[in-house]
């Protein structure tokens, strides 16, 4: 008798658990970003109009993208992107601490975040405060004088492999 009851209990329990797992998976998938949100994640930006030491802000996946043409006399950094003879810093303009937008202080050649006081130098490396890492470089592919953000080209792959940025 007890064996039959145990069997019934286990059968009921297993089916209920299976159903619960299925429902949980469906719930998880419902919270996922929609395909339309994911597929809208590509942006082409022309770098040629950028001026030296003057911050340009573009938008990619809803996030601000900072483009900063480095002055000719600025020290070289492997975080720069070389396009048509110019050296550019292209980063996601969100502080790597908690995601506020840092301001660029052109006279100090420095980014400063007002939220928690974090600072970054002109190639986006964190120099002060709570940010744990340099500003992230978005995935890019060079095409003439433009960058296609969201696609990955060999230059980006190299930076990623060298650990200069995280995948965003």
């Amino acid at each position: 008798m007890s064996n039959r009851r145990d069997f019934m209990g286990m059968a009921l329990g297993s089916f209920a658990a299976l159903g619960a797992l299925g429902a949980l998976y469906a719930a998880k998938r419902t919270w996922d970003p929609l395909p339309s949100v994911k597929s809208a994640g590509f942006t082409t930006i022309d770098l040629s109009p950028a001026k030296e030491n003057e911050l340009v802000t573009e938008k990619w996946r809803g996030k601000p993208i900072f483009i900063l043409k480095q002055p000719a006399d600025a020290p070289k950094s492997d975080r720069e992107i070389h396009v048509a003879g110019g050296r550019y810093l292209v980063v996601v303009g969100l502080c790597t601490h908690l995601g506020c937008i840092p301001a660029y202080l052109a006279d100090k050649k420095q980014f400063k975040c007002a939220c928690h006081g974090g600072e970054f130098n002109s190639v986006g490396v964190n120099t002060f405060g709570p940010p744990p890492r340099p500003l992230d470089i978005p995935p890019f592919k060079i095409s003439g004088t433009s960058l296609i953000l969201g696609e990955t080209g060999p230059e980006y792959e190299k930076m990623l492999a060298a650990g200069l940025t995280l995948k965003v």
Binding site: W31, D32, P33, L34, V37, R61, G62, P132, R133, L166
Partner: peptide, 28 residues
Amino acid sequence: FSPTIAGGVANFPGFVEWLRGDYVPGQA
């Protein structure tokens, strides 16, 4: 935690996007 801590076991960047349903706070 940062990806550099313990080889990134406690780093879940994808979780933030899942929570928001987008790369940044939006309609979802």
